[in-house]
């Protein structure tokens, strides 16, 4: 998993410690701790995982193991406008991969990454329950249906502020 380097501020370390403490620093609560920590920070960089490991008294390799096992967890920050391309079965058979490729081409990022200016991040997800609109793309909370590779540019232009 690729990652970014951050320097945690003292209040951020305190925040992580508080979350751990709210679960009694119990290693068995690792997933819940990570869930809340990601909620607070938006993502789980290595430095955050190290604090969690130290607080729960477990090896940081274990924490990393859990973070990389569950697709919900991410070590990369989300962009200002997070883009999610549905690659569930229905969207996939109706050309989601070509749509995804077009996003990758225009934004020059891989899945899971953000653009250098932090404006867009690109991710895949599996089914938003709008299969009738396949292929589906989400930007933030806004849903775009029947997206074709040609339409990708138009979607991005909506955010050209």
């Amino acid at each position: 998993m690729s990652h970014v380097k951050v320097e945690l501020k003292p209040e951020q370390v305190t925040k992580i410690k508080e979350i751990c403490k709210s679960f009694n620093n119990n290693p068995g609560e690792l997933i819940n701790v990570l869930h809340q920590t990601q909620g607070a920070f938006g993502y789980l960089p290595a430095e955050v995982q190290e604090v969690v490991a130290a607080e729960l008294g477990i090896p940081v390799a274990k924490v990393y193991g859990v973070v990389t096992f569950y697709s919900f967890f991410t070590m990369l920050p989300k962009g200002k406008h997070p883009i999610s391309v549905c690659t569930g079965t229905a969207c996939y058979v109706r050309g989601a991969e070509k749509v995804l490729d077009e996003f990758k081409r225009i934004l020059e990022v891989k899945v899971g990454e953000s653009t250098p200016d932090g404006k867009f991040s690109l991710n895949c997800l599996r089914c938003v329950g709008a299969c009738g609109l396949a292929p589906v793309v989400l930007v933030g909370d806004k849903v775009y249906g029947r997206v074709s590779p040609d339409g990708v540019k138009d979607i991005l232009n909506e955010y050209a502020d």
Partner: peptide, 15 residues
């Protein structure tokens, strides 16, 4: 520790 999942799963140090 075991990291990643499925086909890309390996045993590796942190990060």
């Amino acid at each position: 520790s075991a990291v990643n999942r499925g086909f890309t799963a390996v045993v590796a140090p942190a990060f």
